[in-house]
Design a protein around this nucleic acid. Sequence first.
DNA 1: CCGGTAATAATTATCGATAATCGAAAAAAG
DNA 2: CTTTTTTCGATTATCGATAATTATTACCGG
Lengths: 213, 213
Amino acid sequence: MKKTVVRQSLKDQVKSILIDRMIDGDLAPGDRIKELQVAKELGTSQAPVREAIRCLETLGYVEHIPHVGAMVKTFNKSEIEEAYQVREALELHSTALIGELWDELVEELDEQLALMKAATKENNARKFTQADNQFHRAIVASCENDTMLSMWESLKMQVQVIATLVKASMPLDKIYLLHPPIVDAFRSKSRERASLLLKGHYKILSGYWANLK
Amino acid sequence: MKKTVVRQSLKDQVKSILIDRMIDGDLAPGDRIKELQVAKELGTSQAPVREAIRCLETLGYVEHIPHVGAMVKTFNKSEIEEAYQVREALELHSTALIGELWDELVEELDEQLALMKAATKENNARKFTQADNQFHRAIVASCENDTMLSMWESLKMQVQVIATLVKASMPLDKIYLLHPPIVDAFRSKSRERASLLLKGHYKILSGYWANLK
DNA sequence: CCGGTAATAATTATCGATAATCGAAAAAAG
DNA sequence: CTTTTTTCGATTATCGATAATTATTACCGG
C-alpha cells in the first residue's frame, strides 16, 4: 500500500481548469486569457498561470502574441479539416497495426455504439459526440501505440469546435448508421473492410465541415 | 517595409538553446535540467527557464517529476518504434492526400537524394540523416496540411535518438538505395507504388531498431 | 472634424526572494 | 555492522514586486 495522498501542482490545476473551460464553452475561441485575472480568480500568483498557458500554447489550444497575451485558439475551416485528416491517418494506420486486441476493441465499440444509439433517440448531440469520440479513440488505442494515441488526443480541441458548430444541424441518425458496419468489420477482423468504411465515414464527415462558414 | 527588429522573449531563447543542446548531444537523455543553473548560465532568472521547460515537457522532449525536476527524455525502444509508426502513418496519408505539388515534391526529393548520395560516399551519417529527414519531411509537406507537418516534426527527438545510436553501424549505402524507387514512384504520380515503397522502407528500418540495446 | 502625437492604463515578462519538497548525508538505535 | 530516523542541502514551486510593451485615450494643431 503506497502513498495515497495525491499532490497536484498549482500550474497543473490551472491548466486543467482552463482546458475544462474551453471544452465547456466558458472560454470561447478568441477569448483573451488574462494572466492576473485568472490568477486572482483561482487564488494563485501569476507564475503558475503563465506556466499553464505555456502548456496550452504548446498544445496548440491557445495562441500567444508576445507582450499582447494569450487567446483561445480560433480554428478556421482549413485547420479543422487538417485535424480531421490527421485523425483519419492515425485511425487508419491503427487499423493496420492492431495486434491482439480485436475482441477487446469490438467490445468497446459495441458499448459506444449503444451509447450513440441512445443519444440519437434522445437527440442529444453532446452525448452522441462523446460516445463517437470514445468509439474512435478505442480504435487508435487498440494498436497499443501510446505515441499515436496521445497525438490523436491532442486534436481534441479541433474536434470540439466542429461538435459545437455543427451541433444544431448534425443529423445524428445518419452519422450513427455509419458506425455499425465498422464494428462488424472489426468483428470479422477485416482490416481492409474496416479501413474502407472508416474512409467512407470521414468522407461523409468532410461534407459537413465543407458547409461551415 | 515593416519592422525589421526581431524581438525574442527570454523564454523562447532558453527553449531554443535547450533544444539545440539536445540535438547536438550536449544535453543527453537522462541529463537533469537544473533551473537555477541554466538560468545562471544563460544570464536570466528562474521563471523564463521554467516556462521553457514547460514547453519542452509538453512536446515530450523532457520528463518532469514534481519537486524533483526535469530530465531529458530517454526514449526506450518501444517509444522509438511507436514514433516511427506514427511517422509512417503521417507519410502514407500525406501520399494519399497530395493535390497539386507533385512536381515540386519530386524536385525536392531529387535534391535530398543527391545530398544523401554524397553523404554515403563520405560515409557521413550526420549529413545522411539530415538529408533523409528532409526527404521524408518533403513528402509530408506536399499534402499542404500544416497540422500533419507539425505533428510529424514534433517527433524529431525520437528520430534523433535512433540516428545517434545507430550511427556507427548504419549501412548508409543500403538505406540510400531504398530512396530512388520512391522518388520514381512520385515522379510517376503513382500513390500506390509510392505507399508500397514507403512501407517497405519502414519495414527495413524497423529491422535496425529491433537490433537496438 | 480629422489626424498626429503624447500620455496613460492595462497587461505581459522577468526578477529576486521566500516557501515547500525531495534526496542525500549524518546520527541514532538495535 | 546494519537499519532506521533525523537533519541538512539542493533544487523546485510560488509569491509579489518591478520593468517592459502594447493598446487605448486624451490632447493639440490644422
